[in-house]
Design a protein around this nucleic acid. Structure first.
Lengths: 254, 254
DNA sequence: GCGCCGCTCCGAACACTGTACGGACACCGC
DNA sequence: GCGGTGTCCGTACAGTGTTCGGAGCGGCGC
């Protein structure tokens, strides 16, 4: 009668001994865990490596299990993106009455944001699918501190909003273009210096009918590239803040 | 002996009469055609409707035929994106010595670009996959005219580049966020006014712990939304140009 | 005229994708 | 004990981008 082996572990037919036991030691899967693992996967392997199946595998789970914690892939991406903004430096508003101080704080905010995008360049491919980012709690918190700095500096609500959208718009736009550039390079397997040496000549050739662009490429580029971009960005923010500050001064005068 | 029907069009077995004739009347498929049709498909049905198969079907072609004219989907997208920039207004540089004139021209460039992104909001989902946009011929032409305006206005090469990257960065960033917002709305099947009435209260509730954001939403939003964004954008560009102009004036003074 | 190359087109196939569905199972209050 | 609820997941479906092999064709050298 004993058709099964002695320890009862015959594969296939369930017996009291091989039946999985106490699966619920703890919930085993949580939204936070999923988001964190997705984050890690994105950072290490990039956007096209993130599939529900691969993500689940890294969590020792089935693909469809994820859907009990996350509505769909887009929602997951929205959660991951918002999480990024949670890790950004958020300076306190105190002392922002002094121009040098609030300018430094705004610069810190902008640079933190740019750094985050550059550190997680897959974000760029995701922005389009994640409308309504700025309803996420962390994005909201970030906006709030930005506004706090500006209003402490003396701007009224509308001016502070204008300044914020100018700086953040510039930051996002610049960083997106840069990040998509570096990921394109990475995907082609080349490093930036290598690209410089090998493809730049062709590009310069292609710009021949555009004299100003041509000059830009031939004179500006050979310098240290990444560092050059960093200082470019800083100068851009400074220019914007000059405009913002001038508007404040004008209002105070008249 | 005549097993086929009288006109020789028996399906299945090839005869001199039903054999396809002169398939090469003209190449039947061209890169331009493919790009144009992809453009149309994207505009009418959005990014997730663009697949190689569907695109080919609209061209009465097999899916894999596209690959003889286009390396892969990413290349196709790059071509489509660059084509957008070909249709933008590109003011001549003449007269840009006068501040009012070059400011107007830069504004025209920025607004044209923003309008293009808003008119083709799928662009946002594509930016991440299309690194190296600014090597496309149309983007290059656009940059060249931008630089021409700035240099005619009296900026040197580096300053002109800074100004361009500030304005374009701001434009792209702002437009991307806005566009992804409107596509998210469109995908949810709601129109903006509807969203205002139905979900805004919940959002306002969610901003309760962020007083400044809360005030922004409660006071600013109810006004005409799209128009409000347009004027916001214009003010942002103006602020940036104030900063740019001040830098020029400072250099000229000392 | 003939053979052959190269180009264009495409059907079939492969490896994957997001996710709907339905079932299995553990835990809870009754 | 029993139903309900929440979690987990195997299976399946309807696609996706792209590779491969081959078919038909125009034009070239001979």
């Amino acid at each position: 009668m004993a058709a099964t082996s002695e320890d009862g572990t015959t594969p296939g037919i369930p017996t009291p001994w091989n039946r999985p036991q106490r699966r619920r030691e703890q919930p085993a899967l949580s939204r936070e865990q999923i988001v964190a693992e997705a984050f890690a996967l994105l950072d290490s392997d990039g956007i096209e490596a993130l599939s529900m199946r691969k993500l689940a595998a890294r969590l020792n789970a089935g693909a469809t299990s994820l859907y009990t914690h996350v509505a769909n892939k887009d929602e997951l991406l929205a959660l991951v993106v918002d999480q990024i903004f949670g890790g950004l430096p958020q300076p306190a508003a105190e002392g922002s009455e002094v121009p040098e101080v609030w300018r430094a704080k705004v610069m810190e905010l902008a640079e933190g944001m740019r750094a985050a995008i550059m550190r997680h360049p897959w974000m760029v491919s995701v922005i389009g699918d994640v409308g309504m980012i700025y309803l996420g709690p962390n994005w909201m918190r970030l906006s709030e501190t930005f506004l706090a700095v500006m209003e402490t500096a003396g701007f009224d609500t509308g001016e502070a909003n204008d300044a914020m959208s100018a700086v953040m718009g510039y930051t996002i736009g610049t960083a997106c273009v840069e990040a998509s550039w570096v990921t394109a390079l990475a995907r082609s397997g080349q490093d930036e210096q290598e690209w410089m040496n090998r493809l730049l000549p062709a590009v310069i050739e292609a710009t021949k009918e555009f004299p100003r662009l041509h000059r830009l490429y031939t004179t500006e580029v050979p310098e240290e590239v990444a560092a050059g971009r960093d200082s470019n960005f800083g100068r851009g923010v400074d220019v914007i803040l000059d405009g913002v500050e001038a508007a404040l001064a004008a209002r105070r005068r008249g």
